[in-house]
């Protein structure tokens, strides 16, 4: 009897200390199990030569040295930078669409959902559709180009255009995504501020730039985060549309990693892990920037 009393007493005394940890535990354990430990494992594997079957052989920085001497790595890195730069176009494009759709016309809800449609389709389907769009002989785009210029361009077989072609396919759903973020932001605009601005004779670009955009800053921030991360982890479109081809010219880091570690011609787990670590470090730069900004904002509040 006294035993239970004492244990109840322990619970009573420490309830406030334990409760938050108890509530955190499920999330923390999941995070540890599925995020932190795999990251450490990846880094660990990247120091080994391993085919996934036999014994791991410690080779220190060997994989990273090889990576620095690998032409494909530089192609992938360059393409990732192109992705990063051009993918950001989704933000102004999304904003423009959102501003265009933010009016009260009969049936606007239908138009909004139609514009949002590309984001609902799976990336794989988007990739397939654009592959047909670009396909030589019967693709709509190549027919158009042929009609305009007289020569046919096989976008996905031409190393000059292939990455651009895939990015355009990626921009289609990404623009829709940014548009939705901005539409939500536009709903939350402070009408009094806009009215006051109008009274002060602000309109058009000046109104947009000085009054509306600052109020949309949270939406811009989120759009930026998802777009940058989306550009860096671009994988599905590359895999579906070209598999990194022709002759490796549309390679990006995430696909390169998959190909080396897990594809039919790969099973170089250590090398793949080394690419993953490099990609992780690049992403960390952006993630750190975002987190620093978020913390700063929370402090200001």
């Amino acid at each position: 009897m006294s035993d239970t009393a004492r244990s109840a007493g322990f619970w009573k005394r420490n309830q406030l200390k334990i409760a938050p940890w108890a509530f955190l535990a499920p999330g923390a354990i999941m995070f540890l199990l599925y995020v932190l430990i795999p990251i450490v494992q990846s880094v660990w594997i990247s120091f080994h030569d391993w085919d996934g079957l036999g014994d791991k052989v410690w080779i220190g920085l060997g994989n990273y040295v090889e990576l620095l001497d690998d032409d494909t790595f530089y192609v992938a890195l360059k393409n990732n930078l192109i992705w990063l730069a051009l993918y950001l176009l989704a933000i102004p494009m999304g904003l423009a669409t959102a501003l265009f759709l933010n009016q009260t016309v009969w049936g606007i809800r239908l138009y909004k959902s139609l514009f949002f449609f590309p984001f609902v389709i799976s990336q794989v389907v988007v990739g397939l559709m654009f592959t047909w769009f670009y396909a030589p002989d019967f693709g709509l785009f190549s027919q158009l180009i042929k009609w305009l210029t007289g020569t046919e361009i096989a976008v996905l077989a031409d190393e000059r255009f292939v990455t651009l072609g895939i990015i355009v396919a990626g921009l289609w759903p990404q623009t829709a995504y940014c548009m939705i973020l901005y539409l939500t932001g536009l709903n939350n605009l402070n009408p009094e501020q806009i009215e006051a601005a109008r009274m002060d004779n602000a309109r058009g670009w000046r109104l947009l730039w000085h009054v509306i955009l600052p109020q949309l800053a949270p939406a811009t921030f989120i759009a930026m985060v998802v777009t940058v991360i989306g550009a860096l982890r671009s994988f599905d479109l590359v895999s579906i549309m070209t598999a990194g081809g022709p002759y490796g010219s549309s390679q990006v880091l995430s696909y390169f990693m998959y190909e080396q570690a897990l594809s039919e011609y790969g099973y170089r787990m250590g090398y793949g892990a080394a690419i993953a670590v490099v990609l992780f470090l690049i992403m960390m730069v952006f993630i750190t920037l975002f987190i620093v900004r978020m913390i700063a904002q929370e402090r200001n509040r």
């Binding site: 396909a135 030589p136 096989a154 996905l156 077989a157 022709p246």
Partner: peptide, 13 residues
């Protein structure tokens, strides 16, 4: 390859 004896745009299909 030189005289174009292969299908054009073979890398796309």
């Amino acid at each position: 390859v030189g005289p174009g004896y292969f299908l054009e745009n073979h890398a796309a299909i």
